[in-house]
């Protein structure tokens, strides 16, 4: 068994967290609250030392960079949302953020998120000498076209359109299945590492 107090703490917290699998209990609830509290406290401290102190306190206090006052004032306006009388003042920084956000996304998204992705689906349906690539390209092109048809709501889905959209639905089901399997795989991996920790690091068993 381990002599390290931190390994013991980790083991006890792990077992306490897994106790919810039997049934909900006070130990699990305490650990859940502890987790949230640590995360929140950590974020506050890290934000202060990694960002707020060097960029606001140091730049304004030591560097005398008065331009920092503008974002500070905008940030301060956000707190007026707690006042019914002056809540409208909080709309200015929100409008500022939304304006920047929308413009930023619009200018940055077009090529990498749309054009490049669309181009990647425009594949040759016959690749000479590579039967595997040909099949692969057919799967991709058919999948993109049929799923888009499935979400095409301005045409009544009858006849061939209905049949093609059904293919899209099958593609979606396969995709959801793959996503779910990936999720299970991820959870298994996390559990596995915790068991390795309990058996190897804590109890000193195994290899």
């Amino acid at each position: 068994m381990s002599n390290d107090i931190w390994v013991w703490i980790g083991a006890i917290l792990t077992l306490g967290t897994y106790s919810v699998l039997y049934k909900d209990n006070p130990v699990y609830r305490v650990l859940e609250a502890l987790f949230v509290a640590i995360l929140a406290g950590h974020s506050v401290v890290i934000n202060w030392f990694n960002f707020q102190k060097p960029t606001i306190v140091n730049r304004l206090g030591e560097g005398k960079e008065l331009i920092v006052v503008i974002p500070l004032l905008l940030a301060a306006l956000m707190y007026f949302r707690y006042s019914r009388k002056f809540a409208w003042l909080a709309r200015y920084p929100m409008a500022f953020l939304m304006g920047i956000g929308a413009a930023y996304v619009l200018t940055k998204n077009l090529k990498p998120m749309f054009l490049t992705q669309a181009r990647a689906t425009m594949l040759p349906l016959w690749v000479p000498g590579d039967f595997g690539a040909t099949i692969n390209n057919w799967v991709v092109v058919l999948g993109v076209a049929s799923v888009l048809t499935y979400f095409f709501f301005t045409v009544k889905k009858t006849g061939p359109v209905h049949g093609f959209s059904r293919i899209g639905r099958i593609y979606l089901m396969i995709a959801f299945g793959a996503l779910f399997a990936d999720t299970v795989l991820g959870r298994v991996s996390v559990t596995l590492v915790r068991f390795q920790f309990l058996l190897n690091d804590w109890l000193g068993l195994g290899i």
Binding site: Q117, A120, D182, S189, V193
Partner: peptide
């Protein structure tokens, strides 16, 4: 990536925007 993110990230690989995906514990 964690396993749960692999499927939704694959299109970036197909488009050549990623060199490779190293997926999960595997």
């Amino acid at each position: 990536l964690p396993a749960v993110s692999v499927a939704v990230t694959m299109p970036y690989l197909a488009s050549g925007q990623l060199v490779s995906i190293v997926a999960s514990l595997r």
